[in-house]
């Protein structure tokens, strides 16, 4: 297996997918790196790329007027940055910044969407892998919203 395909197949998002799916997905992938404080993307920009982090940490941020950026989540090795690529209007809702040197696999979201449209088996397989990530993030966000450390504990 070629280098990029191997890396894609080993990521937990693609683990267990047949070689034909991995080949299709790897066809939309490239290796990228970001230096500390470089942005992967900004809010409101088109959701053109999804990033699978191989090394380093990425902070998800929302700009707050007069108070700079507020970090609401950090992601690390093995995590996926960018979950809105599947849903119209395909636009980011927050900024993503590398807090240190980050190496990642970037997947061309449009390329992947097009392949999912043509090959529904691939689309379904990917959806099944993205949904648990979404649910996990949602549950974590719920706990964060409860502000459990506010007055107790």
């Amino acid at each position: 297996m070629e280098g990029l395909e191997r890396i894609v197949s080993e990521h937990r998002l693609f683990q267990g997918l047949g070689p034909e799916f991995v080949n299709l997905a790897a066809g939309c992938a490239k290796n990228v790196r970001f230096n500390a404080d470089q942005y992967l993307f900004h809010a409101e920009e088109p959701a053109d790329w999804i990033y699978l982090i191989r090394h380093g940490q990425v902070a998800l941020e929302v700009a707050t007027p007069g108070r700079g950026a507020a970090q609401f989540e950090t992601l690390g090795e093995g995590d996926i940055v960018g979950l809105t690529w599947l849903l119209p209007p395909y636009r980011w809702g927050y900024d993503a910044r590398a807090t240190e040197l980050v190496r990642a696999i970037a997947l061309d979201a449009k390329c992947l969407r097009d392949k999912c449209e043509v090959d529904h088996d691939l689309g379904y397989a990917l959806l099944k892998r993205f949904l648990p990530v979404l649910v996990q993030r949602l549950q974590a966000m719920r706990l964060q919203l409860l502000d459990v450390y506010g007055s107790a504990g």
Binding site: Q57, A59, L60, E61, R67, G68, A69, A70, Q71, F72, E73, T74, G76, E77, G78, R97, T99, E100, Q136, A140, L143, Q144, D147, Y149
Partner: peptide, 22 residues
């Protein structure tokens, strides 16, 4: 890990349970 932080914070952000699978 902290629930919220400014841009200067270099540690984790997010609930502590997110660290458990790793």
């Amino acid at each position: 890990t902290v629930d919220h932080a400014g841009a200067a914070w270099r540690g984790h952000v997010g609930v502590v349970t997110r660290l458990i699978p790793r």
